[in-house]
Amino acid sequence: MLYRLMKYVLLGPLLRLLWPTKVSGAENLPASGGAILAGNHLAVADSFFMPLYVRRKVTFPAKSEYFTEKGVKGRLKKWFFSGLGQIPIDRSGGSAAQAALDTAIRVLREGHLLGIYPEGTRSPDGRLYKGKTGVARIALQAGVPVVPVVTIGTDKVNPIGSKMWRPRRLEVRFGKPLDFSRYEGLAGDRFIERSITDEIMYALMELSGQEYVDIYAAKAKELAAAEAAGVRPEVPPQPSGVDADRVPETKAS
């Protein structure tokens, strides 16, 4: 109820009015059943605009801290993030990474849509970076298709570090669903998961037209920060099979 209130009455109409958006490929969205919406990640605004043009609710797992802060501010944050379709990740039973995976798989098995950003963090420069394999493991374990989706222009509306959103025409493109049922039962195979993730990232590259960079966005940010500080760090070789962190980002960061 709160999600519908935010989307159709409070926040949604305002976003549609101030930021006109061209939408293509909406027919590629499944009418029912679980599916992953795997997107590029240019700005915090991605999590506002993309779900706006999906008829079904899109769920983004998020840190439980967003829902447990005390006081009036805490209640407002809980109300706001719940209204955006985000649900808290319960980390009490183990690591944050496993909690994120478990939460995502549960949402999908219940027949819902799950929003994921495979890059793990926002692009620092508008390019598309290497995806983390958590998206592949979730898709395999839940047995659901992956729909690539890109938002274009949000980095101009909401540049990193900006406090005010700027006027700009946007575009949201939904690609054809990717079916990985041929890999059923192979969740946990690092080479299969990397192959699936690379296929998803290739689809996002084609859909968005972004330049692809074969390192993680987090590493690119580290290198940029070091260069700004006058340091020249050595770039370690990227592992061919195992990701340092399998868990993809599922909310704006």
Rank of each mutant, 00 (worst) to 15 (best):
Glu234Leu: 14
Ala203Tyr: 04
Arg109Asn: 13
Asp189Ser: 00
Ala142Glu: 09
Ser92Asn: 05
Pro159Glu: 05
Asp125Asn: 09
Asp198Glu: 15
Asp179His: 06
Ala187Tyr: 02
Pro145Glu: 15
Ser47Asn: 04
Trp79Cys: 06
Pro159Gly: 10
Gly134Pro: 06
Val44Ala: 14
Pro88Trp: 06
Pro30Asn: 08
Met1Thr: 09
Val213Trp: 01
Ile87Arg: 03
Lys63Trp: 01
Ile116Gln: 09
Tyr117Thr: 02
Ala218Asn: 07
Gly126Thr: 05
Gly111Phe: 03
Arg194Phe: 00
Asp245Met: 14
Phe174Val: 01
Ala252Met: 07
Leu5Glu: 00
Glu65His: 02
Thr133Gly: 03
Leu42Gln: 14
Pro248Tyr: 03
Leu101Arg: 12
Pro239Ser: 11
Ile89Ser: 01
Gln98Pro: 04
Tyr212Val: 03
Pro236Arg: 10
Lys78Arg: 15
Ser92Ala: 12
Val58Ala: 12
Glu234Asn: 11
Val72Tyr: 10
Gln141Ala: 09
Pro177His: 05
Met205Cys: 10
Trp19Asn: 01
Lys156Met: 13
Lys73His: 06
Glu222Pro: 01
Pro236Leu: 05
Pro148Thr: 09
Met164Ala: 14
Ala31His: 10
Phe49Glu: 00
Glu27Ile: 07
Thr250Asp: 03
Thr250Ser: 13
Val149Tyr: 05
Phe60Gln: 06
Val247Phe: 09
Tyr3Leu: 06
Pro159Ile: 06
Lys78Pro: 04
Leu10Tyr: 11
Met50Thr: 09
Gly175Met: 02
Asp102His: 08
Gly74Arg: 12
Gly230Asn: 10
Pro148Gly: 10
Ser123Met: 01
Glu206Tyr: 06
Thr197Pro: 02
Ser64Arg: 14
Thr121His: 04
Pro177Gly: 04
Leu76Gly: 06
Arg127His: 07
Ser47Leu: 01
Arg91Asp: 04
Asp243Cys: 11
Ser92Thr: 14
Glu119Gln: 08
Pro233Gln: 08
Arg194Asn: 01
Gln98Leu: 14
Glu65Gln: 09
Lys221Tyr: 03
Ile160Lys: 15
Glu27Phe: 02
Leu11Trp: 09
Gly12Phe: 04
Ala226Leu: 12
Tyr183Pro: 00
Pro167Arg: 00
Val150Cys: 12
Phe60Met: 07
Gly115Leu: 08
Ser92Trp: 00
Pro30Cys: 08
Glu249Ile: 00
Leu17Tyr: 10
Ala96Val: 12
Ala228Thr: 03
Gln98Thr: 13
Lys156Asp: 09
Pro118Ala: 07
Phe191His: 05
Asp198Trp: 04
Arg182Val: 08
Ala99Arg: 09
Ala35Gln: 05
Val242Gln: 15
Val247Lys: 12
Ser95Thr: 15
Leu113Trp: 10
Leu113Thr: 08
Val149Phe: 05
Gly93Ala: 15
Ile89Asn: 01
His41Lys: 08
Ser24Asp: 11
Ile36Gln: 05
